[in-house]
Each structure stands twice: as structure tokens, then as C-alpha cells.
């Protein structure tokens, strides 16, 4: 009786483990939710036009993606991770610890972060300093610039009399999101640097500088609207005074109902982001495990597809989906890197 149960348990676990031992015949991709909409288009195109299975893409966030990616080499670990930021050296170390030594970095283009609002009012024209003043928790006192006070601004025209007299009401992503990180770094920190007091702190009090320049106000003027950007778009339509923060592709898809604010006199258009004149944009990447390239069927084909002009080129299908392409020279450079599987150097 006992023997029988043990035998049955053994058979069951063998049965369960069986498929895992077999080779994986599809590419497994993890990583950033910002890159997800672009990577999925490439994956689908690749699956439909070749005999290979369509790659599986999980949206885990950049950090989560690196964690899985660096878990090790073998079919139970992903082959590629997408990221809305470059890999950190700590992550490289983690990778190396688990035997993931050869990583190919591929930059795929840029993503603009926009401040958008309803079409029913005139477009906002902001500077990054004004964005900082509108959204930071603590700001320099306007009367006594040496002193830091809790953010006193309630309406936009209190910051700059040219701005409308509407209440400051910004819907944006929560701290867990990569978009939020990028926005804080690109818009708020630069805005904070425009104050000498804060800039001086960079050398003397690094912690204090970070806290000051990166902390978003919590008095209700900034509303964490969750990860669903479509919801923000709907709320903006309903409330013309509200401003939303999200990736360019959502503005691109909803340009009939919402418009992007000018930042430093630049509108968030495809062209302005592409040539770098729109200041709040960030590069997007994916990272490839070199050891998997020859093991998992279709890896080379997928890399070829992604780095082809018809995908990431100026008229490519990724541009249709809102990805801002890199300049031609940079594209060529990365295409060659990928073809040669040039790996990252440990920093």
C-alpha cells in the first residue's frame, strides 16, 4: 500500500517534470512595461512571418525583468529582458554571480514623457523649473531664496503669472513605475538644479539634495493614478484642469482628445523627441543573453527583425506604435553590435 503510493507520487512528479526537461521552442522575454508595447509588435510580426513560434513576453517592469534575466543560464530563465533604463552595475554583478556573463545591450529608441491635458483649453507652456515648483514637496521660498519651505503653490499662476489661474492637479504614475523614475530624473531634478541653493547641496549634502529634488508633493496636488494610462486619458477628458503624465504613445493614440504641454518651448511631437529638442525623453533598451542565442530557436531571427529598418526605422512599424527612433548612425551602430553579438564590458 505504502510502496504503491510512493510509486504513484514518483510517477506523478516525473510526469509533471517531464515537459520541463524538454527543450523550449519559443523565445522567453521579460521586462519593462514601457518597452512591452513595442517588443510585442516585433514578436508578433516575427511569429507571423517566420516558421518560429511567437515569443512570449511578460510585462514585469525593468527591475523585475533584470532579476529574472540574471537568475541564470538555461531554458528556465528568460532569453531577453526589456528595460526602460540601462542595466545597473549591481545588476551586472548579480548576473555574473549566476553565470550570466555575456550580455548584449541593444538600444531600440526613445520614449518621450509628456504632460498632457484636455484639448478644450489652451496648451500649457512650462519650463522644467516650473514643473519642479508645481510638483516638489519642498521648494525654495520665493521671498527668501535661501530658505526651503513646504510647497506653497496651489494654482499654476502662482508659479508664473503667464500660466492659467487653474488649480494644480496632476495625475501621474505611482513610485513603482519606471515612467515615474524617468520623469523625476529628467524633469524634476533638472528643474531643481536651476536653483543655486539646491544645486549647491549636490556637493555638500547628497542625501538632502536627492530628497529635495526627487520627492513629489503629497498634499493632493499630485494624484497617483495607478499604472493604467488609459484611465488617466479618460480622467483628463472629464476634467480640463487636470494634467496627466504618461508615455508619448498614449498621447499619440489619443491626439484627438488630449494635447501635450510644451516644455522649454518644445511641443512633445514625434520629430521634437526624435531630434532631442524635447527635453523629457529617455532611451529604451533590451538585453540579450548571448549563451541562449544558439540554443533557443529563432533568437537570431528575432534580433534581426527588431533591429531591421522596417521595424525600428524612421518609417518602421514601431514608429507607428509611438516609438521614437534613434538617429540613423546610432541604429546602424546597434545593428552591427547585435549582428556581432558584442557583449557588455563589466564596468
Amino acid at each position: 500500500m505504502k510502496l504503491k503510493t510512493i510509486a504513484a507520487a514518483g510517477a506523478l512528479s516525473l510526469l509533471l517534470c517531464g515537459p520541463a526537461l524538454a527543450a523550449r521552442d519559443y523565445i522567453s522575454i521579460v521586462g519593462s512595461s514601457t518597452v512591452y508595447p513595442f517588443a510585442t509588435v516585433v514578436a508578433e510580426q516575427f511569429g507571423k512571418t517566420t516558421g518560429y513560434k511567437t515569443p512570449k513576453i511578460e510585462s514585469t517592469g525593468s527591475g523585475g525583468g533584470f532579476k529574472l534575466f540574471c537568475g541564470g543560464v538555461g531554458i528556465n530563465h528568460p532569453d531577453i529582458t526589456n528595460a526602460s533604463r540601462a542595466i545597473k552595475s549591481s545588476e551586472m554583478e548579480k548576473c555574473a554571480e549566476n553565470g550570466v556573463n555575456d550580455i548584449v545591450e541593444v538600444k531600440i529608441g526613445y520614449d518621450g514623457i509628456v504632460l498632457a491635458h484636455s484639448k478644450s483649453v489652451a496648451p500649457l507652456k512650462l519650463t522644467r523649473q516650473e514643473i519642479f515648483l508645481a510638483l516638489a514637496k519642498d521648494v525654495p521660498d520665493p521671498k527668501n531664496p535661501g530658505k526651503i519651505i513646504p510647497n506653497p503653490y496651489k494654482t499654476w499662476n502662482e508659479i508664473n503669472s503667464n500660466l492659467p489661474p487653474t488649480k494644480i492637479e496632476v495625475l501621474g504614475p505611482p513610485p513603482t513605475s519606471g515612467t515615474r523614475d524617468a520623469f523625476v530624473e529628467l524633469a524634476m531634478e533638472t528643474g531643481a538644479d536651476s536653483f543655486d541653493v539646491i544645486k549647491a547641496m549636490k556637493k555638500t549634502d547628497k542625501e538632502g539634495y536627492k530628497a529635495l529634488s526627487q520627492t513629489v508633493r503629497e498634499d493632493g496636488a499630485y494624484v497617483e493614478a495607478g499604472e493604467n494610462d488609459n484611465l488617466i486619458v479618460q480622467k483628463l477628458q472629464a476634467n480640463p484642469a487636470a494634467v496627466g503624465i504618461f508615455g508619448f504613445s498614449f498621447l499619440d493614440q489619443n491626439s484627438d482628445v488630449i494635447q501635450g504641454s510644451f516644455i522649454e518651448d518644445m511641443p512633445p511631437t514625434f520629430e521634437a523627441i526624435a531630434d532631442g529638442s524635447y527635453p523629457v525623453s529617455r532611451p529604451l533598451y533590451f538585453y540579450v543573453k548571448k549563451a541562449h542565442v544558439d540554443v533557443i530557436p529563432g533568437m537570431k531571427g528575432y534580433l534581426d527583425e527588431f533591429t531591421s529598418e522596417k521595424a525600428w526605422g524612421e518609417d518602421g512599424y514601431l514608429a507607428d506604435k509611438g516609438l521614437i527612433p534613434m538617429p540613423a548612425a546610432e541604429r546602424k551602430q546597434y545593428h552591427e553590435n547585435v549582428a556581432a553579438l558584442k557583449t557588455l564590458e563589466m564596468k
Binding site: 515537459p19 522567453s28 512591452y36 517588443a39 508578433e44 511569429g47 513576453i57 510585462s59
Partner: peptide, 20 residues
Amino acid sequence: LLMIGMVAFIVDVPGSFTDP
């Protein structure tokens, strides 16, 4: 399911218990 990777873009219709 997020933790075990089922929140994913999967085009092919699964045919068995071990297909993504």
C-alpha cells in the same frame, strides 16, 4: 499569476498544459 509569468503577451493559442 503575475509571479509565475502568466501576465504575458502570448499569441499562439495554447494546445496543452505546458504551452505558455
